[in-house]
Structure formats: structure tokens, C-alpha cells
């Protein structure tokens, strides 16, 4: 049990660190695309670890109590939330980036833009 508690705290720490990096990146980066990198990807990675901590804790209590308990519901729903987050986050970031490029937002400080002046419908 002690090892599991330590692992949970480590996971929470990693999750919080990457969420913090996402927030800092949102303020530091120059344009929409780079900010999208920080705001969506780092926070997704942070959320994976935060949810993994929840799954570990509730899964351990579930295993100790056996059969059905409130913790088993928490464990299963946290796993589903993680799956939904992974799918929707990627799709959402893609939709935002595509909409931004079509409405004329150009990447600042970009060295190459292969998509420049191309309309794909």
C-alpha cells in the first residue's frame, strides 16, 4: 500500500508539472499554432498522469474490497474519460488549426509554409 501511495503522488506531481508547462507555454509562445501545441498537448499528457493516479488509487481499493463497490465505478469511468479525452483532444486541436489556417492566420516566425496559398476543399 505504501508503494502505491508513493506512486500516486509521483504521478500527480508529473501531471501537475506538465499542466504547468502548458500554462507557461500559452503565455510564452508567439502565435496561435505554437500556443495550441502547449495548450493542448502538454495538458493532455498531464491529464493522462492525473487520471492514471485516480485509476491506480480506486483500482487498489476495488481490489481490496472485492466485487462491486463505488471505487469500481470510479475506476471504469476514469478509464473511459481518458479514452474520450485522447480522441477529442486530437480532433479538436486539428479542427482549430485547420480553421485558423483557412481564415488567414499565418504562423509567425515560420521558416517554411507548404500550405501557403493552397485552398483544399
Amino acid at each position: 500500500m505504501a508503494a502505491l501511495t508513493i506512486a500516486t503522488y509521483v504521478f500527480l506531481g508529473i501531471g501537475l508539472f506538465f499542466s504547468l508547462v502548458g500554462v507557461i507555454g500559452l503565455h510564452r509562445f508567439p502565435d496561435m499554432y505554437t500556443r495550441l501545441h502547449a495548450a493542448t498537448k502538454c495538458t493532455t499528457f498531464g491529464a493522462i498522469f492525473l487520471i492514471a493516479a485516480v485509476i491506480m488509487q480506486s483500482g487498489a481499493i476495488w481490489a481490496a474490497e472485492g466485487a462491486y463497490s463505488a471505487q469500481s465505478v470510479m475506476c471504469i469511468r476514469a478509464t473511459l474519460a481518458l479514452l474520450a479525452l485522447l480522441i477529442t483532444n486530437a480532433t479538436g486541436a486539428h479542427a482549430i488549426a485547420r480553421a485558423a489556417h483557412r481564415s488567414g492566420e499565418r504562423p509567425i516566425r515560420a521558416v517554411v509554409d507548404d500550405l501557403e496559398g493552397k485552398e483544399t476543399d
Binding site: 508547462v21 502565435d31 505554437t34 498537448k41 504562423p107 516566425r109 517554411v112 509554409d113 507548404d114 500550405l115
Partner: peptide, 23 residues
């Protein structure tokens, strides 16, 4: 994903970026 996350965390802190849109 884990490797790339650490790389981006480094770029967020140092601000060294070289963005491009590639095909």
C-alpha cells in the same frame, strides 16, 4: 509521446522554436 513531451517542455522553458508547416 513521452519523449516529445519532455522536448516540448524544454522548448517552453527556453523559448527555442523553429516553426514550419511541412507537407
Amino acid at each position: 509521446m513521452a519523449k516529445a513531451n519532455i522536448d516540448v517542455a524544454y522548448r517552453v522553458i527556453t523559448g527555442r522554436i523553429n516553426p514550419a508547416i511541412v507537407k
